[in-house]
Nucleic acid binder design. Structure first.
Lengths: 337, 337
DNA sequence: TCTTGGTATCGAACCGTTTCGATTGGATCG
DNA sequence: CGATCCAATCGAAACGGTTCGATACCAAGA
């Protein structure tokens, strides 16, 4: 592949002149500039960004770590962030954790070796060892969706607490009192926040939480399915089910349908984050939507500030907490008498 | 950030010895190796991959160009490819075209500047100018899903022709004769193949194709919605609708539902590529599934062969055409009497 | 005529690595 | 005991760029 040297030879000028001309970083006569442009075209020169970055001591690469690429939530998040970042020369180098927290550290180290200018990530782990690693990393990091306790990194999320609260309030207003909650692993920050929102709303509505109605299904459709089969087969069964993510909502819907119940006539179902293009299908599931575009916009904005050196690392922590939006579908109704 | 020089100084050896030791590429005494390891830990050394790549004249970066990151098809494709590629040191640098063909050339050029070792892409454009560009690019390319006429690049896809054929045969077997086809832009390779499969199956079943039943909806749910509203409002309406992708299938389902028809009692709906996690929802749409994991596996395998220099560019063209799988749901039934 | 100053161009050092061709010192061998 | 050989280590030259401090030239001012 052609190098700057080839261009220089072909144009009959020195290497430095070519560099000066191409970057517009020094005075070059009109005539020389024309000869250089011609040479560039003739030898098909494409500047080597690795060499440029090495010399300049900076990088045009931004790392992005996704919790689970197969989940449409992450697809839309990535798409929007990419639109903002992949501008002039910057590009995104993306890694997928596939929901496996063990890959997290290795992935971050690999990104460091690639000398990325910054990292946007949706973390899975939330433990002191991981927090310590993040505190020592010398690359700007913006966390999205989930927090890591004990760090002071920029953080963009939606109000998960408020999200389940809104859905719970809605179900309570419809008259439900036996509301089951299908949640994620308690060790995850987001799962805890969502559970707390549920409990807060239940308390406010003065409904006692029944412990057997609070189940953990690890954000998996299959586990949610099994749990809901169990819940709905018990003599005293819930009249409404609140699932803490899209997969579990669909698993729950599948379970009640397979048992011969109709939704919403026999049982109401609501879910967090059931993204638009699946909720078109019947029955449209009542959900709270995270404003993904908004999250992505703020995350990439802050990242670019870091990359351009405008934001200081170690300054006060920046948090952006977006308000989720209640989208009422056809999956909820007053409880059967 | 610490460089190899810092390690050398700290360990009291020369730079070359450190390099030799770290890469295991020369004899180093046990004792020196220990001192170097200690130094690496002490100064927190992380090798600079940009510098390594520059020197070695290779790159650990593989480019990936996605047609539309928000579509779960691409999310799963990316996730699986990432799992195969992101091995030891390789990583994926991903760009999203957001269905905009104008970004395609610019994106490829940017990847070239980053000196990626190869590019896996799902192309949007399919015209001579684009083919010419691809023929001149000096980076190994593997095409996925869609072909570009006039190139001889490695190509991995599923049998789109066979896919619509299977669905059409299935509808014909159920007794349908008024089958509407909602397809994508004819300029796209995949859209043409799918349309041909439909026509072939219709001919084989000896059903005349009615031109007004072949509509174009650009792979968009909204356009499909509008078209199906029109089709189903006409005096002579189809008894079955075949949608050529997931978005359009959902748009079609939405349209018939909004008009008060029931699916499958009043009208059958089948769609290509309605991915698993949305098809759980009721009614489960009958579909042909692309074996995404298989496509991803072959694509990354071939790419790694190129990266490792095992595959020759300019050799005979390699094609992998996977068989789609018919998944029968609850959205199709014999036509009303 | 001798500075001064600005414009266009160039040479060389450097970014962080790898790698090739020395150099050194001890062990082995005839 | 001198010639060989091998293991361990090092110095220096790249890789493809950027950038700083020359240098050469020419016009303007004293």
């Amino acid at each position: 592949m052609a190098t700057i040297r080839d261009v220089a030879r072909h144009a009959g000028v020195s290497i430095s002149t070519v560099s000066l001309a191409l970057n517009g970083t020094g005075p070059v006569s009109e005539e020389t500039r024309a000869r250089i442009d011609a040479a560039v075209a003739a030898v098909r020169y494409t500047p080597n960004l690795m060499a440029q970055n090495l010399k300049r001591g900076q990088s045009k690469l931004v790392g992005m770590v996704l919790g689970d690429a197969a989940n449409p939530f992450f697809g839309r998040l990535f798409g929007t962030i990419d639109k903002q970042i992949s501008g002039h020369e910057h590009m995104l180098i993306v890694a997928n954790l596939a929901s496996d927290p063990d890959r997290e550290l290795r992935t971050l180290t690999l990104l460091k070796r690639h000398r990325v200018a910054g990292i946007i990530m949706t973390p899975l782990r939330n433990d002191p060892e991981f927090a310590a690693y993040l505190n020592e990393i010398d690359v700007p990091v913006v966390l999205v969706d989930q927090d890591v306790d004990g760090t002071a990194l920029d953080f963009v999320t939606s109000d998960h607490h408020r999200g389940t609260e809104m859905l719970t309030e809605y179900l309570a207003r419809l008259g439900h009192r036996r509301i089951a909650y299908v949640g994620g692993q308690r060790s995850m920050w987001v799962a805890r926040r969502r559970l707390e929102g549920f409990r807060a709303a239940m308390a406010k509505a003065d409904i006692p939480v029944e412990p057997e109605f609070e189940v953990v299904a690890d954000y998996s459709a299959d586990l949610a399915y099994d749990n809901v089969i169990r819940l709905m087969s018990a003599p005293r069964r819930p009249t409404a089910i609140l699932a803490a993510n899209n997969y579990m909502a669909i698993g729950a819907l599948q379970a009640v349908t397979d048992l011969g119940f109709r939704c919403p006539d026999d049982v109401s179902i609501a879910g967090i984050d059931v993204v638009a293009w699946s909720s078109i299908v019947m029955p449209r599931i009542t959900t709270v939507e995270q404003p993904i575009e908004d999250l992505a916009r703020v995350a990439s904005l802050w990242m670019m500030e870091h990359v351009r050196g405008e934001a200081v690392r170690g300054g006060p922590r920046r948090c952006h907490i977006a308000e989720p939006r209640l989208v009422i579908g056809h999956s909820c109704a007053p409880p059967p008498k």
